[in-house]
């Protein structure tokens, strides 16, 4: 039986990526455009939130991706440590900017949504604060990749940062939870928490179907982007190697 690790061979990965990419891109575009149009034009307004409920089709998928992309980077970093195949490290590198953008989308749409609903762009709700911290982690990770010249060293150090960062990210999540309860135990946060936290529970079937389509769309978009960006990184690495060889001869 063929193991999935055979695709860790860069040439095989590139071939697979080249065949898959058009299809995944097509599916991503269909799901995204379909889901967003369905959600934007053909769903009713929420009785309490009015038309702002339409923001959910961007906000929830982006937030899900923001967390899951970091998780994917964690898995890729672990794989890099265990199997030492460059493709894992490169995939993690390629994923980070996508995760950062997703975090920005989640924060931005959340702020825009919060303004009419809570009367403020920003509250120091645990969920919001955690996302801000997650964004800082993405920035630090990307900056470390950019700063180190030796590719092998960069792979190792960013993988270590990703592992340590994951532990601290989880720790921060709990710390932030604790801190906010400690600071304001009151109606405003309870209300904010109820709106920010329990949206999924209140989403009825009318909203759920296009929402799932959008989540699928964001997921497929991520797959398409990661295939493309990892191939880009492989090509860059190969070009650098070729250039080094030319200089040697």
């Amino acid at each position: 039986m063929a193991s999935i690790w055979q695709y860790a061979n860069p040439a095989k990965f590139m071939r697979l990526s080249d065949t898959l990419l058009p299809w995944v891109s097509l599916a991503a575009a269909l799901c995204l455009v379909g889901g967003l149009i369905w959600g934007f034009f053909f769903t009713p307004d929420d009785f309490r939130q009015g038309s702002t409920v339409k923001i959910i089709y961007l906000h929830v998928p982006a937030a899900l991706m923001a967390i899951n992309i970091w998780f994917m980077m964690l898995v890729a970093s672990l794989a890099w440590f265990i199997r030492r195949q460059h493709i894992s490290a490169l995939a993690a590198k390629a994923a980070a900017p996508i995760g950062a953008v997703m975090t920005v989308i989640a924060l931005l749409t959340g702020a825009i949504w919060g303004e009419p609903m809570w009367g403020t762009w920003w509250v120091w709700d645990p969920r919001l604060t955690s996302f801000l911290i997650l964004f800082l982690f993405y920035l630090g990770y990307i900056a470390l990749w950019e700063a180190i010249e030796n590719p092998e060293t960069a792979s190792d150090l960013t993988a270590i940062l990703c592992l340590v960062g994951s532990v601290f990210a989880v720790l921060s999540r709990y710390a932030v939870n604790f801190w906010n309860q400690g600071l304001h135990q009151g109606a405003s946060v309870m209300r904010a928490g109820a709106i920010a936290g329990d949206t999924e529970e209140r989403v009825s079937n009318v909203f759920a179907a296009p929402l799932f389509m959008c989540i699928a769309g964001f997921g497929l978009l991520f797959v398409a982007l990661i295939l493309m960006r990892t191939s880009t990184e492989i090509r860059k690495r190969r070009a650098a190697a070729l250039m080094a060889r030319e200089r040697m001869s």
Binding site: I133, L136, L144, A147, L157, L161, G165, F168, S172, F178
Partner: peptide, 27 residues
């Protein structure tokens, strides 16, 4: 240790370390 090999890594060091300080600062 992460930034030791990087020239002018001071700012990067702050960017890497500050998020890690969050739990300690909060508690």
């Amino acid at each position: 240790a992460l930034t030791v090999g990087i020239k002018r890594g001071g700012l990067l060091l702050s960017l890497l370390v500050l998020p890690l300080y969050v739990p300690t600062l909060i508690f």
